[in-house]
Simulated scan of single mutants.
Amino acid sequence: MTGDPRVLIVDDQALVRTGFRMILNARGIEVAGEAADGVEAVSAAERLRPDVVLMDIRMPNLDGLAATRQILARHPGCRVIMLTTFDLDRYVYAALAAGASGFLLKDVTPEHLANAVRLVSTGDALLAPSITRRLVERFAAEAAPPPLHRDLTPLTPRELEVLTLLGHGRSNAELAADLGLSEATVKTHVARIFTKLDLRDRAQAVVLAYETGLVRPAAQ
């Protein structure tokens, strides 16, 4: 994608939507539209085709998780950032599993908000891998899902090793150090894993590592 992304803001609080719109517009990021609940969000995404959706989790009529699933099913190239509160909403794990590229706290700084939108629009995950891992550990342990029988045979032994380390929250630099590889080689392995397993970004890779049993949630 070239240029700044077009953003859809979804929140049932008008004040939040207005504040985010002002922040993004001031930094040259176009706000394509707003929605006050999940139903409006799905309709707006269909009509406006935004690059990034800022999606509140808890809303009337249709919550952010259900709306995320519907939007990404219809527009897989779209990126969704979940908006949550400081206490880490219990739906975060499910949102990441549904394809969301990360989450932001609603009291995010203006600079972090703009940077996050731009980062996600390039196809990267918003969260640092270690933060994603902690979130997944917390909520995967609560949900205790049975291992997902996903076919990992397309992966080479090295790629399987890289995916496992991704699940443990390693950054590219840490992967390079752990495996004795250059960061460029690590990036190539990661990109191939995403392609072979049809993964959106690192957040989904971490979730998949847990769901397939490559990584087990730590004891709580």
Rank of each mutant, 00 (worst) to 15 (best):
M1P: 12
D4E: 07
V7E: 10
I9P: 03
D11E: 01
D12P: 07
L15D: 13
V16C: 00
F20V: 13
M22A: 15
I23E: 03
L24C: 04
N25P: 11
N25V: 15
R27P: 11
R27H: 15
E30K: 14
V31A: 14
V31N: 11
G33R: 06
G38Y: 01
V39C: 05
E40L: 05
E40H: 05
E40A: 01
V42P: 08
V42Q: 00
S43C: 09
A44G: 08
A45T: 12
L48P: 05
R49N: 00
P50V: 08
V52E: 12
V52A: 14
V53F: 12
L54V: 11
L54T: 11
L54C: 12
M55P: 12
I57A: 04
M59P: 02
P60G: 04
P60Q: 07
L62Q: 05
L62N: 04
L62D: 05
G64V: 07
L65Q: 01
A66K: 07
A67L: 01
T68K: 10
R69E: 06
L72V: 00
A73T: 13
R74I: 03
H75P: 04
G77W: 10
R79C: 00
T85E: 04
F86P: 08
L88K: 03
Y91R: 01
A97M: 08
A100F: 03
S101Q: 11
F103L: 15
F103T: 07
L105D: 02
K106R: 10
D107K: 01
D107E: 10
V108H: 15
E111N: 10
H112K: 15
H112S: 15
A114Q: 11
A116D: 14
V117W: 10
V117L: 14
R118T: 14
V120E: 14
S121N: 13
S121P: 12
D124K: 13
A125P: 02
L126R: 14
L127Q: 15
A128Y: 11
S130P: 02
I131A: 13
R133I: 07
R134L: 03
V136R: 09
E137N: 11
R138Y: 03
A140I: 06
A140K: 02
A141S: 09
E142N: 09
A144W: 00
P146N: 07
P146C: 10
P147S: 06
L148Q: 06
L148G: 09
H149N: 09
L152C: 06
T153M: 05
L155I: 03
T156Y: 07
T156K: 04
P157A: 07
P157V: 07
P157E: 03
P157F: 00
E159R: 05
L160P: 01
V162Y: 05
V162T: 06
L166K: 02
L166M: 07
G167P: 02
G167C: 02
G169M: 13
G169R: 11
N172S: 12
N172D: 15
E174V: 11
L175S: 05
A177L: 14
A177V: 15
G180W: 00
S182P: 13
E183H: 06
T185L: 14
V186S: 02
K187G: 01
K187I: 08
V190E: 01
I193N: 09
L197F: 04
L197N: 08
L199D: 00
R202W: 04
L208P: 01
A209F: 03
Y210G: 08
E211K: 08
A218Q: 03
A219S: 05
Q220V: 13
